[in-house]
Structure formats: C-alpha cells, structure tokens
Design a protein around this nucleic acid. Structure first.
Length: 720
DNA sequence: AGCTCTACTTAGGATCCAGGTA
DNA sequence: TACCTGGATCCTAAGTAGAGCT
C-alpha cells in the first residue's frame, strides 16, 4: 500500500541532476499542504528492493571503486560482502581531509537523498480507559493521546516526582481536553484511569519479548531496508551516512527538569506535509521542520561519521589548540582587569576567570515561562552563591556554588578561592572572591550577579584575543589539556612500562574521569543500578562472614574438633536439576506459543523459572565455602586463600562502581577531548585503539587516526 | 542595541545488543 | 551455554553562537 505513494514522494524529494550538474535539491518538509505518505517499514519488501538507490558503490565514480577495491583486498573479496559492508567500504574510501574543498562559503555543491522516513500511522487498539470507573469510548485520535499518557512510567523522571508530575499532568490534561472537546464527559483528571491501556501496553511489551529468532531477523531486515533507502546521501559524488532519518513520532513532550511545558502533546508534522525544496549549499541540513510546542527548528543532518561533522570537529579542536598559545595573553589580561574600576570590565574579567577555571558554560538568557530555570556563568543569581557555607568565619574564602545547569544537572561545589590551586602563579583566586562578593552585595536573591554583561558582550570581548574565540572553546581547550596532562603524568610514573594494556586502559579512564568531573558530566543512578550495588555489598558481607567461618574451621581442625565443622545443608545437585527442568518447560511453552495469551503465559513462566534459578544460585553462593564432608586442613587453607582474593577483587569492583556511578565518561570523549591525544597515546603505549574508541567513535574520528605517537595538543597543530 | 531566528553542538536517558563469564 | 551486564546506539532535548532584523 505504501509503495505506490513512495514513488511520487521520492521523485519529489530526490534531486535531479541538471545537465550542468548544478542544481541539486534540499528539501524542507512540513508547512505546506502537498501531502504525501511515505513509510519506512512495511511489508512491501520486494518492491522496495527495486526502488533502492542504484547501488551506491556502483554509482560512485569508477576511480573510487578502484580505490575501495584495492584498499580492502581484491575484487573477489568484495563480492562476498553484504550490502551494509559494501556501503561501509564505499563511505570509508572517501578521505575528505585529502579531498578538494567545496567553494568558499559552501559546504557542498550537489546533494541527493531520500528525505525523512515517517513512522507508521497510529493503529487504534480499542482498549478503553476508565472514567469514574466506567469504560469510555474514544475516537482514534483521542485514544492515541490517552495512550501517550498511559505509556509514561509512573515511577519515571516525569511522573515519579510529585513536582514534575503536577506540571506534566496539568499540561497533558489541558491538551487532552482540547482533543476531547468541551462537551466530553471527561472533565476531571482525578477520575481518569489509564490503567487498562497501561496494562495493554505492558502486555504488548511481553509479547514482543517472546518473538522467535526468525521474527527478530525479519524485523532487523525491515530496519535494514529502511536504512538502505533513507540512511544514505550522495554529497558531491560521495556516499555519506544520514543521521536522524526517522521523523520524530508524536507524543507527550518530555522536557527535562522542571520544564513548564512537559506533558503537552507534541506533533512534528501534521499530515506528513512537505514544504518546499530548497537548494542552499551554505548549510549542512538535509531537511528541517518546526516542532509545535517550543516552536523550535529541528533538522535532519548527516551522521557523526560524515565529512561535514568531521570537518567541523577538526576545526573545533584546532581552534581550541590555538588557545594553548593565546591563553597566556588572555589570562594576563583578565588578571589585570579583575581590579578595574570600570564595572563592566571588572565583571567581564571575573566571568572569563570563572569560565576558564571552573569550566562553566556561558549561560544565555532564558524565559522561565517557556523553559526550565537553568543557568550558566552570565545568568548566575545571588541565590546560587553561599558564602562561607560551613560558617568557619575569619578570612574564609569559600563559596558554595549551587545551581541547575544544562539539562537541569545540579552543579554543587564549594570553591575555596583561597586555595593554592587558584592562587599559585598569580592565579588571583582571592581577588576573584572579593569581586564576586562585591557583585553580590546589596542584591536580591533573584538578581543576576553579572548584571553588567551578557554572553554577546563576553564573546565579542574574547574575539579581540583570537579569531572565532567564544566561551565554549574554553571547555574544549581545558578538557583536552587536562586529558593530555593526566595521561602524561601516568606515563611518567614508576613501572608504567610494565603495565598491561588493560591496566593502561584503566589509567586512561581515570584521566577521562578527571575531564568528566571538570565538565560536570553526570548521570543519574537508576534504581536497577542502586539495587545492584546493594546486592554486591551484601555479597561482600557474606564473603567476609564465610572467611571468618573458614578461619574457625582451621582452628577446629588444629584442635581436633572436627565434629564442630559445618557442612553443606542443601543438596545442590537436586536444586539445580529442578531449576533446569522449569527453564526447559518455559522454553517449550515459548516455542509453542501462537496466540498473545500463550505468549504472555510463556514469558511469565520463563521469568518465573529464571527467578527460581537465581534463588538457587543464591543458596549455592551462601554455602559455597563449605564441603559435603569434613574437609582436610589443606582444602581449607586453599579455600581461604581463594576467598581472600575474591574479597579484594569484589572490594575493588565495588569501589570502582561507586566512584563511577554518577560520572558520565562518554560525553567528554565524544565532544570535548581531542581524539588525536587519545590516538597518539594508544600508539605510544601499544594499546589497541579499540580499547578506547568504539567502532562508531573510530568512524567519527577517522580524520584523527593517522597522527604520530608523539603528536601533541598545542598551538602548532592548528597551522595545518 | 537589543531582540528573534536559524543552525549547529552538546547532553542524558532509554533501549538495544554483544561479548565476557559463571 | 545461557545469562547478565555494561557498553553502544538511538532519541531528541537543551545548550551556544552568530546572523539578521527592527
């Protein structure tokens, strides 16, 4: 059904190369009415195959094909590759850093792509929500809205917190009532019961879990077909990966923190309406549309491993590296200006100090009616500063900074401006403290501390030191410098050369952690993680008790009191067999299950069996230190040694997990640390790059892979 | 000069999946 | 050899910055 519509849609979107090769097309779906339906996944596989792009490997120039073939083995080998792999090779064969640049001011000349893929339209399930306990008939559109709400986790970050739950419910219900109409019986949220729909959704989840391997394969194939169709673009003759080709499905807006609009119903593209087709080679986007709640532009862009992103990334890191030299002048300048009589100059200097030393974001203005109340440097308020937080009195120079930053992440740190690290080498920590104190004096809690400046002013000020310098460059610069310095420190430590690759990777991760802490990259501890940590703690306690028992056994053996030695209470063999049988039975049920009821039953039986198995594992663990019969002294000594190892290993593991549970290492790796530092480190230390960068990261940073072992993040590298 | 708008980077949570290990 | 966990990937929100507009 979809396929007939696909053709015109595709024609519309696809660029036609004009004879002169000039006018390829950018599209801009939305806004206008020219409707077209165009589906990503459906049953019409055969048809789709024919419609696929001419094989991009073939479509690229003969020359390029040759490069791909010679670079990766003889042509015969290529034949064996599947389509995904061939596409991979085609993309990897384009080394943009060796290629000709597009014309000045342009990012591309020709562009071909298949547009966005729309999700399947909503399929009504017919499950009725209750109002005052009675089932209510809803139209498909009304039912869809109700289902958005039912899909929210009652314990999740929106509904699980009473404060946000109130905002969410208020917004959702207002929009829901709009859809229901004024005369609808549903008038009071408290009388609504979405439980039947929620239950239905959970059942669907369970059913999905019970799919066979075959079905799973088929699903993957479907997704692959969509990926072949929408996931690639040809930019100036080169194959490139598209990032987000799936149109965002409608749903309840999930704003973070205390976002005043969370819960409102969000529809990206009413009626799949395409807008105009635009050819604007100055930008990198492939499609753009407006979202209805915050009136924000959304974009379809190329993926992270594309040449566009790679170029921007390299440019970003080179700019940050340039700072290595300029920073001296900048710091000299702001240190002088910290004492300026001019309020604006003084505030600018103080703000740049804060951005440089504390790695804060610049902090643009926000409208709290429209967005969550979060701040950065320039928008910090008096209420975010607690002077002398521990009431130490005297010449205490501590300030506790407490505010919500980007994504409503809590920044809560006590900065001792009198500390050596902020004052050595004329760091001016104490002066900054005095400035902040004076900026705060005579102000209301809600007044801005930096009331004489704003991000535009600050960034313009920075431009005088370096072309293109803005506040965010400091975060990139300091993150990369920190990584490099931390890595150098460990490399200079005693016995470094003797460490195994795995041990070196741990050190790398420690350096990465320093950067993440500097940038305040956090993650919240999920409930599952919390219980896991508790369980590990419990296990550790058990191990320690068992060690005590083992020691007592040694004593008893020495004293000849062998009758006092405990032995295993439970017959492990019998228990294990019992569990295995239950698992086997559940498996059979799963294989036989045809109807939804059977699938649900099978999954439940499966979960029950697994639970039993876990219980038995637990029993085994609790008597693992014992024997069936009275052991010899030798046996006990051996086991005691093993237990000591187990305990120290688990203690390490636990500490490691605890240290890391709230720190997110990925964000700095992806966005802040110059990848060339990591690549060079790997080369110097004979650590395989795969231990540091996943496949996706290696593709994203392909431009960084060729650096020399001694490569350094400094101002010189920007000269290339 | 200050505001709005556009285009891009940066971000954490949810979900998926593979590989290490009991 | 199944299981579980942690890492990879997906998703889209939330920043920054600069251009353009009034």
């Amino acid at each position: 059904m979809a396929s007939d519509d696909d053709i015109p849609a595709k024609k519309k979107i696809k660029a036609k190369k004009s004879p002169n090769g000039g006018s390829d097309v950018k599209m801009k779906p939305a806004v206008v009415k020219s409707a077209s339906t165009n589906k990503a996944t459906s049953s019409s596989k055969k048809k789709r195959k024919r419609e696929l792009e001419p094989d991009p490997v073939k479509s690229s120039s003969p020359k390029k094909k040759k490069t791909a073939a010679t670079a990766n083995g003889p042509k015969k080998e290529l034949k064996k590759l599947d389509k995904s792999e061939r596409l991979q090779y085609a993309m990897q064969s384009f080394l943009w850093w060796n290629a000709k640049e597009p014309p000045e001011g342009c990012q591309w000349v020709t562009m071909e792509h298949s547009g966005v893929s729309f999700p399947e339209p909503y399929q009504p399930h017919g499950i009725k929500m209750l109002y005052e306990g009675k089932p209510i008939d809803l139209t498909p559109i009304q039912e869809e809205a109700a289902t958005f709400f039912a899909a929210m986790d009652p314990e999740g970050m929106h509904l699980g917190n009473p404060k946000t739950a109130n905002i969410f419910i208020k917004n959702f219900f207002a929009d829901f009532r709009d859809i229901l109409g004024k005369k609808h019986v549903i008038k009071d949220f408290k009388k609504c019961d979405f439980e039947p729909i929620r239950k239905h959704l959970n059942e669907q989840k369970i059913i999905r879990k019970a799919i066979t391997d075959q079905e799973r394969k088929a699903n993957k194939e479907d997704r692959n077909q969509a990926m072949f169709r929408y996931g690639f673009a040809i930019v100036d003759g080169h194959l490139e990966k598209v990032g987000n080709y799936n149109m965002e499905p409608p749903g309840a807006f999930r704003g973070r923190g205390e976002h005043p609009k969370m819960g409102k119903l969000q529809v990206s593209l009413p009626g799949h309406a395409w807008g105009d087709i635009r050819h604007d080679p100055r930008g990198q986007w492939l499609a753009t549309w407006k979202e209805n709640i915050n009136n924000q532009s959304k974009y379809m862009q190329l993926a992270a491993q594309s040449s566009f992103k790679g170029k921007s990334d390299r440019f970003k890191y080179n700019k940050a590296a340039k700072l290595c030299d300029k920073i001296v002048d900048i710091r000299k300048s702001y240190k002088r200006d910290l004492k300026s009589k001019d309020k604006e100059t003084k505030q600018l200097a103080t703000a740049v100090w804060v951005i440089d030393r504390l790695a804060l974001r610049v902090g643009g203005e926000k409208d709290t009616e429209e967005e969550a109340d979060t701040v950065g440097c320039c928008s910090l308020r008096r209420e975010h500063f607690h002077f002398d937080p521990n009431n130490e009195g005297g010449d205490n120079k501590e300030i506790e900074l407490e505010f919500l930053g980007k994504d409503s992440m809590l920044f809560k740190q006590t900065i001792d401006f009198g500390a050596t690290m902020y004052n050595e080498e004329n760091g001016m920590g104490v002066q900054v403290y005095e400035n902040l104190k004076s900026f705060c004096s005579k102000k209301k809690p809600t007044d801005e501390v930096f009331d004489a400046i704003n991000p535009t002013l600050l960034n313009n000020h920075l431009k005088q030191f370096m072309d293109g310098l803005s506040a965010k460059v400091f975060r990139t610069y300091n993150a990369s410098r920190t990584l490099q310095e931390e890595l150098r420190k460990t490399e200079a430590s005693n016995g470094w050369k003797r460490l195994s690759a795995a041990e070196k990777v741990i050190e790398y991760n420690n350096a990465n952690r320093e950067v993440a802490i500097l940038c305040n990259h956090q993650r919240s501890v999920s409930k599952a993680q919390e219980t896991q940590l508790e369980n590990l703690g419990g296990k550790l306690e058990t191990l320690k008790k068992q060690k005590k028992t083992l020691k007592a056994m040694l004593k008893a053996i020495a004293a000849g009191n062998t009758d006092k030695i405990p032995t295993k209470k439970h017959d492990e063999k019998a228990l294990t067999e019992k569990a295995a049988k239950a698992v086997e039975k559940a498996k059979k049920l799963k294989e036989k299950a045809k109807t939804n009821e059977e699938k649900i039953k099978a999954t439940e039986a499966d979960e029950e069996a697994k639970k039993k198995k876990r219980e038995i594992t637990e029993i085994k663990f609790k008597q693992a230190h014992l024997w069936d019969k009275v052991p010899t002294r030798d046996q006990v000594v051996k086991k005691l040694e093993a237990w000591n190892n187990k305990i120290s290993k688990m203690e390490m593991d636990l500490k490691h997990k605890d240290d890391n549970k709230e720190v997110s290492l990925g964000t700095s790796k992806i966005n802040y640390m110059d990848p060339r530092i990591s690549v060079a480190w790997c080369k110097r230390n004979e650590v395989p790059i795969e231990k540091i960068f996943s496949k996706t990261l290696r593709d994203k940073f392909n431009w960084a892979m060729a650096v020399e072992p001694e490569w350094e993040f400094n101002a010189k590298i920007a000269e290339e």
